[in-house]
Design a protein around this nucleic acid. Sequence first.
DNA 1: TGCGAACTTTGTTCTAGCGCAAGGTCCATC
DNA 2: GATGGACCTTGCGCTAGAACAAAGTTCGCA
Lengths: 240, 240
Amino acid sequence: MIDGPTKTLPRLDESLLTHMPPFSRLSRERIRQILDLASSRRYPEGQAVFEEGAEAGRFFMLLDGYIRVIRITETGEQIIALHIPPGQLFGIAKAIGRSSYPATAVTASESIVLSWPMELWDSFLSYDGFATETYKTVGTRMGEMNNRIVEMATQQVEQRVANALLRLVNQTGRKVEEGIEVDFPITRQDLSEMTATTLHTVSRLLSAWEKAGMVKSTRKHIIVCDPHALVVLGHHSSKH
Amino acid sequence: MIDGPTKTLPRLDESLLTHMPPFSRLSRERIRQILDLASSRRYPEGQAVFEEGAEAGRFFMLLDGYIRVIRITETGEQIIALHIPPGQLFGIAKAIGRSSYPATAVTASESIVLSWPMELWDSFLSYDGFATETYKTVGTRMGEMNNRIVEMATQQVEQRVANALLRLVNQTGRKVEEGIEVDFPITRQDLSEMTATTLHTVSRLLSAWEKAGMVKSTRKHIIVCDPHALVVLGHHSSKH
DNA sequence: TGCGAACTTTGTTCTAGCGCAAGGTCCATC
DNA sequence: GATGGACCTTGCGCTAGAACAAAGTTCGCA
């Protein structure tokens, strides 16, 4: 979905942004200004916010929901590069010197997104704390990518899937009765695209873990009951 | 090696920096200033310029040689994250909002390196074109990491090694009689650490390619005779 | 010139986990 | 309440490539 942003939501309250790191040092007035420049929009689950290669006309902030950053190979395989939780900027191509989006962003669940025209980027950068926080975010994402590379290079499938699951519950987990649940719909296929394996293998692993009482899962939902047991898997032994 | 930088080289000429992208828009006088603030140093092959986790006290520019950015796992395995060619900044932790280096930098061949105290970073950022070029570099490196993830997730070992080799000759290749040679010493082990495989497998692949006339290799040296043949390998078919 | 360390090669064995196949379950929609 | 599509499970065979093993080669250095 690349069509123009539209205001489908009621007038936005300043409190939406006051606690988001990139804006937290700004005055109420400044935030009002920023909000008045923003378009807000609701995306249903599974919709693209922008596509890889498209001209980077706007930058975004996720207010609610989850965004999945994906890449698609020439042969049509998808790989999930990153999950973005609420409160983060994304599609900030200009921050890394690009004029087109380097990947596709899709909603992992219904999401509320603010966006601004990329022309405003430079003025945003001048706001107190904005640049610092933004580059911190870039750094964090680089770190995550790096860890992923190391993980794929050195760990077995079981450990990778365990780690991916742990990361999900840590970053986006919601406490429920039996443990912590990933709080957006997630399929075996999704998990396999995050860990470079097949949905079959993921399914088998989840079955085994469920038998061992470490997780509980139903269609599109996964609850981690015993995080520590998964951590231990991750620390077991190396590939070589 | 983390010991203090020392001026071991003769006085630096302005022309060293005038054609390096981050500085190319600056006046001769400004460049003189910048050089006078710099420490220069020669590192023999295989030496660490800085180590992962250390406080990021300086940032660097590679004048000559090659730098390898590596990470080491808890179990002692090395993985090579990136190769940096001459003319690029590295160790620019501040650019991504970090106060310690996120990886270790080691020379892949004898190298000449300039460095400045990180306290000067903000003033450098104000120089015309410096910030833009720097963030472009960050963006490029993110892109490379991303491609690497996709590659590891979707390609077979042979294709990955072929691609890694192609990237090396494209970025750092030196034309020789029989083809293009990687212009720093590189072992089978190095190549395996770049592609998440073993030195044994790399050795077998190189042997096979040599038999097919696509490459020529000796101890620590690899010449690609028929780049196109390697490209074709990379395009063959996907894993799934 | 001879020793040892650092590289490289090649053979053989073994297994993680992929590919393939078939069937089951849940859910939306008519 | 039946049809179809999306998602999940499980079994089995097979192969890429890791692990193990053992020699061979090159090079710096005493």
